[in-house]
Nucleic acid binder design. Structure first.
Ligand code: MN
Ligand code: MN
Ligand code: ZN
Ligand code: ZN
Lengths: 137, 137
DNA sequence: TTCTAGTTTATAATAATTCTAAAAAAAGTA
DNA sequence: TACTTTTTTTAGAATTATTATAAACTAGAA
């Protein structure tokens, strides 16, 4: 279903040239329908394992940021030393386990509608995200 | 109101020795009742300006983290290159302007009650925070 | 005052991220 | 296709935030 042809289309549609490296990264990110969260370092390790050729770290950074800009990836707001990205680009929220550093999706439906009764002059809301930190019971 | 004697008490109460440096940092953080958000670098600049003596960056890091652990400061979850801290330790939420990098408080009362209808096995919720990203209208 | 554990400091180390400039690849053109 | 132009990749350097180290210093107790 998500094969090379689709990746090329996906890239073309968003004005990105379908280079060999970008297609490889697409394979890792989008091949299976299950979405996941990752840091750049984790992604780089997965790529190193799954793909025969190596892709430079700079390219991984560049590509991930390009995908983010195009809306193919989301960046998750957590205050840690590294950035977390998400292949689930739908609007949703997160659990974060500070112990295991694990992120878990919290779907939009699992949260009652959020109503913000304040606004900032001259500004409009671009996103509203909940981060639920969890700890061991 | 918030004078040296109080800082010493505050520090003592939380098992921290009232050293010269920590009291100076307290002055910057807690002297005026108005709370604010800061990065370590901003804090370090404020200290350099307001206080005659210089305090090493390591001490600032250590002290801020000690205060955080003791609950005198909160760390805000935003994915940027630096950590944001908050002298407002009450439960509240934030607006974040990605352009100006400015954080603004969103009080608990400004947000309708958040109801999470999902839980993770063996985990309990330790905090629920909303980050509202804003952009120019 | 003396002793000791806790603290500060300068500095080095680490680690995430970005920058750079040259080489390689892709696209465009004829 | 063959040539030109544009974009991308790459290795490595640079930058920046943060943490670790280890020696000098200090607060507080005895
Ligand atoms: Mn931290
Ligand atoms: Mn980033
Ligand atoms: Zn997610
Ligand atoms: Zn705040």
């Amino acid at each position: 279903m998500n094969s090379k042809g689709n990746f090329v289309k996906k890239l073309r549609n968003s004005g990105l040239r379908p280079t060999k490296q970008r297609i490889k990264i697409c394979e890792v990110l989008f091949k299976n329908e299950k979405t996941f969260h990752f840091t750049i370092n984790e992604l780089s390790k997965i790529i190193a394992e799954k793909i025969e050729e190596k892709i430079s770290l700079a390219t991984i950074y560049n590509t991930v940021h390009a995908f983010k800009k195009k809306g193919y990836l989301k960046e998750i707001s957590i205050n840690t030393d590294k950035s977390y990205f998400d292949t689930n680009t739908s609007h949703h929220h997160h659990f974060f386990d500070n112990l295991t550093k694990e992120l878990t999706d919290l779907s939009n439906e699992d949260v009652e509608k959020i109503q913000i009764n304040k606004s900032l002059p001259g500004k409009k809301i671009s996103s509203v995200e909940i981060l639920v930190k969890v700890e061991n019971e």
